[in-house]
Simulated assay, not measured.
Amino acid sequence: MPKGKDVRVIVILECTSCVRNVVNKESPGISIYITQKNRHNTPSRLELTKFCPYCHKHTIHGEIKK
């Protein structure tokens, strides 16, 4: 394999409900998680259910660009 084409890449997951509320200034912050994914097995954007400390519940966290 050529260098720079790692199979596992680091992705940043951001709370989708906090992002919507930041525009309205209702949320004190945005929940962010850092994880890894396999580029070959999951070529599309990753979405996981994680706990958001700002929403105080489990919400969908979607992958964002670095």
Results as ranks from 00 to 15, higher is better:
59 T>S: 02
27 S>K: 00
54 Y>H: 15
31 S>A: 15
4 G>A: 10
48 L>Q: 15
28 P>F: 00
4 G>N: 11
66 K>F: 12
47 E>N: 09
33 Y>M: 09
29 G>D: 03
39 R>Y: 08
30 I>L: 04
11 V>Y: 05
40 H>T: 12
38 N>K: 12
59 T>A: 01
30 I>Q: 01
6 D>R: 14
23 V>L: 10
26 E>F: 05
15 C>N: 00
25 K>W: 07
27 S>T: 06
61 H>Y: 14
57 K>C: 01
52 C>S: 02
42 T>V: 14
26 E>A: 06
34 I>A: 08
65 K>M: 13
24 N>H: 12
65 K>H: 10
49 T>V: 14
60 I>K: 12
13 L>M: 09
31 S>I: 00
14 E>C: 00
33 Y>K: 11
58 H>N: 06
56 H>M: 02
1 M>R: 08
33 Y>G: 08
12 I>D: 03
48 L>T: 10
12 I>S: 09
59 T>W: 03
26 E>S: 14
27 S>L: 03
19 V>C: 05
9 V>C: 05
65 K>S: 13
18 C>S: 04
66 K>R: 13
1 M>I: 07
38 N>H: 14
49 T>Y: 02
30 I>P: 01
10 I>H: 13
13 L>S: 04
37 K>C: 11
36 Q>T: 14
13 L>F: 06
54 Y>K: 05
35 T>P: 06
11 V>K: 03
26 E>G: 05
42 T>C: 14
15 C>G: 01
8 R>K: 09
35 T>A: 13
25 K>Q: 13
22 V>W: 02
27 S>E: 04
17 S>R: 03
35 T>K: 09
16 T>P: 04
4 G>H: 07
4 G>L: 12
35 T>Q: 07
38 N>D: 15
5 K>C: 08
11 V>T: 13
3 K>G: 07
16 T>G: 09
37 K>G: 09
